[in-house]
């Protein structure tokens, strides 16, 4: 099992957001997590990636057989956890090229490998750019600075392609994307998908799931997974909305 979450409770500033969540992911799987706003989907992503301020009060996150509750975010990243941000962050004055080389070399150092030779790095970048149809000049610009909404999301997938994570979490990657950009992003994910990695796709809408076909669909509500099923569940949610879930599970 790649990821196993057992009875997870997460609080932000003393307020419990995730309340006893159980969830597991195997290699080669795509899981979709859906649910209304404010049910803890992004909090789950933050807890898995180790963001400061998201306090695990109970339960365990087990990644590749190790409890990672206390690991720093960079250690988790270097072990193979990747988050495609809902709102990618701008870092003025730091070029994408420099940023990615630093990230890639941090990973290599973690694995006790020498830094990647410049030529090899540039070749790899060109290759991955094509995957998400990123224009050359974008990588010369500062990280996410002045990028359009679509470019930012493509840029997240581009970074994912370069870092080759074992577990990728896509947090509302579809929000703010037009249909063409959505196809590019989905296409990138589908090409990266293999038997050796897994994806967690967090989304409000079924739309993205037409292009990234999940093996499992989970519905989150009030900090728990309240319903799981196959692809059909997403279609049902699309048709019926979330009210019937709320009616069924409201405390």
């Amino acid at each position: 099992m790649l990821l196993n979450i057992k009875n997870l409770h997460v609080s932000i500033a003393g307020k419990e957001i995730i309340r006893g969540l159980n969830f597991s992911v195997n290699k080669g799987e795509i899981h979709a997590i859906m649910g209304p706003n404010g049910t803890g989907k992004s909090t789950l992503a933050a807890a898995i990636t180790g963001r400061e301020g998201y306090e695990i009060t109970k339960g365990e996150i087990i990644f590749k057989g190790q409890v990672i509750n206390d690991w720093s975010p960079d250690k988790r990243a270097n072990e193979g956890v990747f988050l495609s941000f809902q709102y990618p962050i701008e870092i003025p004055g730091v070029s994408m090229t420099n940023f990615m080389r630093t990230a890639l070399n941090a990973r290599r150092e973690y694995k006790e490998l020498p830094p990647i030779p410049a030529g090899e790095f540039l070749k790899k970048m060109e290759e991955k750019k094509k995957l998400v149809e990123i224009h050359s000049k974008l990588t010369n610009r500062s990280v996410n600075e002045g990028f359009s909404g679509g470019e930012k999301k493509k840029n997240e997938i581009f970074q994912m392609a370069l870092l080759e994570p074992e577990l990728a979490i896509l947090d509302e990657t579809d929000s703010g994307l037009d249909i063409d950009a959505l196809k590019v992003v989905a296409n990138g994910v589908n090409q990266l998908k293999s038997d050796e990695n897994a994806f967690i796709v967090i989304t409000h809408y079924q739309r993205l799931l037409d292009y990234i076909v999940p093996d499992f669909v989970h519905v989150m509500y009030n900090g728990r997974i309240v319903k799981s099923g196959g692809k059909g569940l997403a279609l049902e949610l699309e048709e019926r909305g979330y009210d019937w879930i709320k009616d069924q599970f409201d405390d």
Partner: peptide, 26 residues
């Protein structure tokens, strides 16, 4: 946010600060 973004890409805190500061002073 900036620090977490860097850390999520595997860059440790110290290096992330160096990176961000150098960008600021570019």
């Amino acid at each position: 946010d900036q620090l977490f973004y860097c850390q999520q890409r595997g860059i440790d805190m110290e290096k992330a600060i160096g990176l961000i500061v150098n960008g600021y002073a570019k």
